[in-house]
Amino acid sequence: MHQIQTTAKVIANQKVNDAYYLLTLSAPALAKMVKPGQFIHIRVNEGFEPFFRRPFSVYRAKKGQVQIFFEAVGRGSKLLARKKKNDTLDVLGPLGQPFTMPGKGVQQIVFVAGGIGVAPFMVFSDILKKHKARKMLLYGGRARAHTFSMAEFKKNGVEAFVATDDGSVGVKGRVSELFKNIEVAPFTLIYACGPKPMIAAVASFAKERGLKGEASMEEVMACGLGACLGCSILTTQGYKTVCHDGPVFALDEVIF
C-alpha cells in the first residue's frame, strides 16, 4: 500500500447543518488513489496545538478533489471548521483498509450510519451505483440539527431511512429501531460506521440474523501508518490497529 503526503488547497468549506461541515480539497493524486472506507490524516494546524493529525473518512473523491464530511466537535475539528477557501492543509493518505466490494451475487446492501459515520458511504455508493443490489441507508442522528438532505444518496439509487433520538426527523429512537423495518433478503451485506455502541448493536443484529458485514472503527490515532500501535483495539485475532489493519473490520471480528 502506498500513501502520499501532500499540501492540499481548500476549495470550499461548507456548513451543512448546526454541526456538520463539508470540506472540499484539491488533491488530484489523492483523489485517484482513494478507495471507499479509507481515510486521510490531516494536520489541522501548524505548530503543536493540537499535536496529532486528525483522521477523516473520505466522503467523496473525484475530479481531482477529495471531500470530507465532518462534525465540528473537538479541538481539531473545530479548527478545521474555520478553514477557508485557498487555505492549505498538510494531508497524508489514503490510509487504512477499504471496505470489501460486494460480489455480484449480493442482493441487498445495508449501510448503517450513526451521525457523521455516514461519511464513507457516499463514496461507497458512488462506486456501487451500477451494482444491481437493493441499497439502503439507515441513518441515525441526535436531532434535526444532525440531519441533512439525503438527495445525494437517492441519486445513487440508495433508499434512505432516518431516525432521530428525539423524533424530530424520521422515526424516533436509535438507528437500531430502523433495523426492525428491514426485510432481510438472502445475500444481504451490512456496512456500519458510527459510535461504538451502535456498531455493537449492528454486530449483534447481524449475528442474530446470520448476516455478514463490515464495520469502520474509530480510535484516537497518532501516526495513521501502523507504526506507533497506539490505536489498537481488541479483535478475535488479538490487538489490531484501527489505522492500518482497519479501520474496516469484519463485523464478527471486533470484540466490544
Binding site: 493540537p50 499535536f51 506507533c228 497506539g230 490505536c231 489498537s232 483495539i233 481488541l234 488479538g238
Partner: peptide
C-alpha cells in the same frame, strides 16, 4: 501483545 487500550493520549506539545 501489548497493553490494553487506550494506549495513547495527546498532551500539550506531545503525547
Amino acid at each position: 501483545e501489548g497493553n490494553p487500550p487506550r494506549r495513547i493520549c495527546e498532551t500539550p506539545a506531545g503525547m
